[in-house]
Every structure is written in C-alpha cells, then in structure tokens.
Write a protein that binds this DNA or RNA. Structure first.
Lengths: 69, 69
DNA sequence: ACTTAACGTTAAGTACACTTTACATATTAG
DNA sequence: CTAATATGTAAAGTGTACTTAACGTTAAGT
C-alpha cells in the first residue's frame, strides 16, 4: 500500500529520526513504512496522520483495497 | 482501544459471521476486535469503516492515544 | 581530508494480528 | 424437546509489525 509519509515529512522538514522520536518508534520503523516494507499498525497510522495534521485516509492510499459483496 | 464495531453491526443488522465474510477474515477475528482483545490491522480497519460507510476515525476511538512533543 | 548528518541495509529476536479447530452457552423456532 | 442460530472461549500455529544492533553510502560543513 502506498503512502505519503515521505512526502509529508519533506513538507514538514523533519528527519526520519525526529519523526521516529515523536511517534515513539525506532528509526527503522519509519524507514520500513516510508519504503513500503510493511504497513503501520492502526495506532501508529493514527499518530502519523495527526503529526501531519491529516486524517489516516489522507496519508495512506487504500484505493487498491477490495471489499467483498 | 474502544471501537463502535459491535454497535454499527447492530445498526446494520448483520451477524459476526456475515461481517467476517465480507471482510475476508475469520469470525474469531471479528469477535476479538469487537471484544477489544486486539486492534485490527490498518487495512482491516479501513474495510470495517467502509462497510459501515464511515471513516476509520469514526469507528475507532483514538482519544487515549498520546503523541509526543 | 575528515567529520557529521541523513538515509539505507541486513539480521536476529519479540509481540501481536490473524487462522483453524473444537467446544460451550443462550435464545429462538418447529 | 430438539434443532438451529448467534455469540463466546481456549489453544496452538503462522506471518507481520516492530525492536536492537551493526555497518555502508552520500552529501554538506569545516
């Protein structure tokens, strides 16, 4: 799933390390999310969105998520 | 973290099994989420919200989530 | 030339999201 | 009374979100 974390972090001009500190996670976690290795947990996604003054849906791209009948 | 899944499922009058089918997960997963055993993944949270025509933040209560300095 | 800052990788470990199977209980329908 | 429906619990297994630690690269500052 694509996300706008790297873009938003650029707009807010903060480093991965600074973002990781604010989120309370390791720098590796920020790298992994930015590089699409895995998706954040629900709570972490929420924290990311709030730091960038967005909703979760504005940061993460759910357009490829399919929902059944 | 609290959520409104059980309440919304009641309003939409569908069973846990039916919801699980639409989400593509097991019934146990729905039970665990409704009963607060654990939080859904980001993608699952999105699917739940869409089925009930809500945003993620309208379904899940993030009021106790703290964000650092 | 050397250092520091920022970003990235790899690897091994822990915790949790989710699965399957099996069984228990309460309520409702025939 | 019996059977079906809906909800719940327990246990053991798999995959992924996240951690720590160590190391490599590139660009900027002095």
């Amino acid at each position: 799933m694509n996300n706008r974390v790297r873009q938003l972090r650029g707009e807010f001009k903060i480093t991965q390390e600074r973002l990781a500190d604010r989120l309370g996670v390791s720098r590796q976690t920020v790298i992994s999310i930015e590089n699409g290795r895995y998706n954040p947990s629900l709570v972490l996604a929420y924290k990311i969105a709030k730091i960038f003054a967005c909703s979760i849906e504005e940061v993460f791209d759910f357009s490829e998520v399919e929902i059944g009948e």
